[in-house]
Write a protein that binds this DNA or RNA. Structure first.
Length: 734
DNA sequence: AGCACGCCGACT
DNA sequence: GTCGGCGTGCTC
């Protein structure tokens, strides 16, 4: 029997091997292409997996294979190169292939549902509509414009295209439909080619020009695009993307969190038009899948999305951009713990296309790669429109009486800013009213029952809220310990600062932007709109304020609580603090209104802080890198974190001790083991957590160890009593 | 992860 | 005598 073909299938299950099946009954050989989905029996039930390869001999000798139920796709969903990239990623991050591939699929496809068609609905003129004259629509200019547009198009226009060309189209279109002038038709071809955005050349400054020229679009290269806020990184992206499109290839743009970068998205849509598939979080499952198919089939020329968009199949990929590459949201913090930024470089390498990593505050990893020559280093030094960077100063708040965390000097500066008719921005990286509630009589402190953490008071509703597990309870006016009624709240969050500011400046519009005020969809946009219109003169909020938005009328930035960054438990704390300060500072100022940044600190002499404000982020980063080098920390070494958690206090420790022993035996002395140690917050959401940290000078030594170690960990009996995970290149030790 | 099997405690 | 607890093992 020559037709003894065996299907190797990646089945979504937390298992580190793939599974072999016989082809479904009556399958034609040509339908068995790697990259199609296969429905297979698995254990008790059925699963939807992906066909990885065809074999003539299985490696499960003497076992009767089960027969797959059905091939679910007529054409592969992933090409060979994309499939191999996913397999590589799974191996690198020690995550089961089946789950990695499932992760890369839109949810509907994951569940085995039939692939959605990429039919588009487009508006056409009817025969009656074709007979109409624009001149007869003098009283309805919108309808006249619509009529003209539709007459020009040969193939009809999508509503996205209409929205792109006209500011309002809905009601005139409806009116025309009622007159029988227009109709909607379904098409199999996704886009009318006439709907490309215009790619007019924009004037680049000399920095931008040399950055664009330095990128070789013909082959792989990784580049750090290093430029302060407002230096025009987006213009460089757009120019490169346009060049790539004009060569008939596709571009992939990654952004940290889509809700926080509406300005970037709007610019891409405005400049590139209909070819942009934006993967919002707001898309429904079906819309999301259709955008995915458009990209996969090569109809979408640009895909813009958050970290998961990295896995979109793109047959003609010619450029990857990772905007704000330092942002931690590129690292997935559960399940498949990949870094989209790092994988972007791998994908570019494998697909032989350039990768641009953009940031005003590059991560030390990327900076190191640029300094060592592995990445090209493109610098944008001038701020567009000659805007000057804000002047940064430290405000010593030792022995200063603070009012809700605000020093008198800062308050005076705010007053001056408001009197000059400008806006002030205050950054407090702590939401809620106060982080501590305590009894003045007995010293009792409100703590979470499920975490080793204090509960934060949220003022308006007088509710205690644990920011780590989300549990909340009503604050009783009496101390639960001694019964006294002298509870006090210490420290301040955004709510209290807002309260005090509104007492200090009763006439002034104040807006607070944090997770609590922007929970509802669209509320962030609404608040930002108010800021743009000058409705508010004081802006205060958490890091949400520091991302993506620019506030040209802000001339004063106050940073309230920067000190925990200086002495954080994590060796990356200083880097993050510096990035945060520089990012917030970048929100302010423009040509005629240079901004000023005041940083309140109890450690004004701290050398790293001094370096940052006197000589800027680059100098800070060089020094921080030198410290990392002398301590042999990443990026001068490589780390893997084995995490374990369980409801029983001892279980993680028992597991990690065994894991440690096994690891040492496998490592041949080329890997250092630190721990096990309890996690920084040992108990969280009722589970005890502990870590074992591995470090090596060579990635390959860690990779070799992991391949064997992870399999043997899975078979440990102590592993059954914990939830464990391997974090390759961990970013946060939480 | 699910989901079976299997071997010991309190119940209609 | 069963119902069901969760320890252990398997998934092509």
């Amino acid at each position: 029997m020559p037709d003894q073909l065996i299907l190797r299938v990646a089945v979504p299950a937390p298992l580190y091997n793939s599974f072999d099946y016989l082809p479904p009954d009556g399958t034609l050989a040509e339908s068995l292409m790697p990259g199609v989905r296969v429905s297979v029996p698995f254990g008790r039930g059925d699963r939807c997996g992906i066909l990885l390869e065809l074999l003539t001999e299985g490696n499960i000798a003497g076992r009767r294979l089960k027969r797959a139920h059905a091939i679910l796709d007529q054409a592969p969903l992933f090409m060979k190169a994309d499939l191999e990239f996913l397999i590589w990623a799974g191996r690198y991050y020690q995550h089961p292939v089946g789950e990695v591939i499932a992760n890369a699929l839109p949810v509907r496809l994951r569940k085995g549902e039939p692939a959605a068609s990429v039919k588009t609905t487009r508006w056409h003129l009817t025969d009656l509509g074709l007979l109409q004259q624009a001149s007869s629509l003098k009283r309805a200019p919108k309808q006249a414009a619509l009529l003209a547009l539709l007459k020009e198009s040969t193939n009809g226009l999508t509503k996205e295209h209409l929205a792109h060309q006209l500011d309002t189209y809905r009601s005139p279109l409806l009116a025309m439909q009622q007159k029988g002038w227009v109709e909607v038709l379904e098409h199999d071809d996704p886009e009318s080619s006439a709907s490309r955005g215009q790619s007019a050349a924009y004037a680049l400054n000399s920095d931008q020009k040399s950055a664009v020229d330095a990128v070789d679009l013909g082959r792989f290269g990784a580049y750090l695009l290093d430029g302060v806020t407002g230096s025009g990184k987006t213009e460089v992206y757009l120019t490169l993307v346009n060049e790539v499109i004009s060569k008939g290839r596709q571009a992939l743009i990654l952004v940290p969190e889509i809700g926080l970068t509406p300005q970037l998205i709007r610019r891409f849509e405005a400049r590139l038009g209909q070819g942009v598939a934006v993967l919002h979080s707001g898309l429904g499952a079906l819309e999301r899948e259709q955008a995915w198919h458009l990209a996969r089939l090569g109809h979408a020329t640009v895909v813009l999305g958050t970290r998961s968009a990295l896995f979109t199949p793109l047959p003609r990929l010619g450029l990857i951009v990772v905007d704000e590459e330092h942002d931690l949201s590129y690292k997935q913090q559960d399940g498949f713990r990949y870094s989209a930024r790092d994988l972007a470089v791998i994908r570019g390498q494998r697909g032989d296309c350039p990768v641009i990593l953009g940031s005003a505050t590059p991560s030390l990893e990327t900076l190191h790669n640029a300094q060592s020559g592995r990445y090209g280093h493109l610098k944008l030094t001038s701020r567009a429109g000659e805007a000057k960077l804000a002047q940064m100063d430290l405000l010593d708040i030792r022995s200063v009486r603070l009012e809700a965390g605000l020093s008198p000097l800062l308050i005076e500066q705010i007053r001056g800013t408001l009197q000059a008719g400008n806006q002030a921005l205050l950054f407090i990286n702590r939401r809620g009213y106060a982080p501590i509630v305590t009894c003045h009589d007995c010293g009792w402190v409100a703590e979470c029952r499920r975490c080793d953490a204090r509960m934060t008071l949220h003022g308006s509703s007088n509710i205690l809220w644990c920011h780590h597990c989300g549990s909340q309870r009503r604050l009783d006016p009496h101390c639960p310990e001694c019964g006294a009624d002298d509870l006090r709240s210490l420290g301040q969050g955004t709510e209290r600062v807002e309260e005090v500011l509104s007492q200090l400046f009763p006439e002034i519009g104040i807006v607070r932007i944090d997770r609590d005020t922007t929970r509802r969809k669209g509320s962030l946009d609404k608040l930002l709109e108010g800021i743009r219109k000058g409705k508010y003169s004081i802006l205060l909020g958490t890091q949400m304020l520091a991302k993506g938005h620019h506030f040209p009328d802000v001339t004063l930035v106050g940073i309230l609580d920067v000190d925990q960054g200086l002495f954080g438990a994590d060796y990356r704390a200083a880097e993050r603090m510096a990035q945060q300060i520089v990012q917030v500072s970048g929100r302010a100022g423009r040509a005629e209104k240079p901004g000023r940044v005041l940083i309140q600190t109890r450690h004004p002499d701290h050398p790293m802080m001094q370096l940052l404000i006197r000589r800027g982020y680059d100098a800070f980063a060089s020094e921080a890198l030198a410290e990392r080098q002398s301590a042999a920390f990443p990026p001068f070494s490589y780390q893997v974190l084995l995490r374990a958690e369980a409801p029983q206090e001892s279980a993680p420790r028992v597991f990690l001790d065994e894991a440690h022993q096994q690891g040492v035996a496998l490592a041949n002395g080329r890997v250092e083991f630190w721990g096990p140690v309890p996690a920084p917050m040992e108990r969280r959401a009722g589970r005890y957590r502990a870590h074992l940290l591995l470090q090596a000078h060579q990635r390959s030594d860690l990779q070799r160890l992991l391949a064997q170690w992870v399999v043997s960990l899975a078979s440990l009996k102590s592993a059954r009593r914990v939830r464990w995970s391997v974090d390759v290149d961990p970013q946060e030790m939480l």
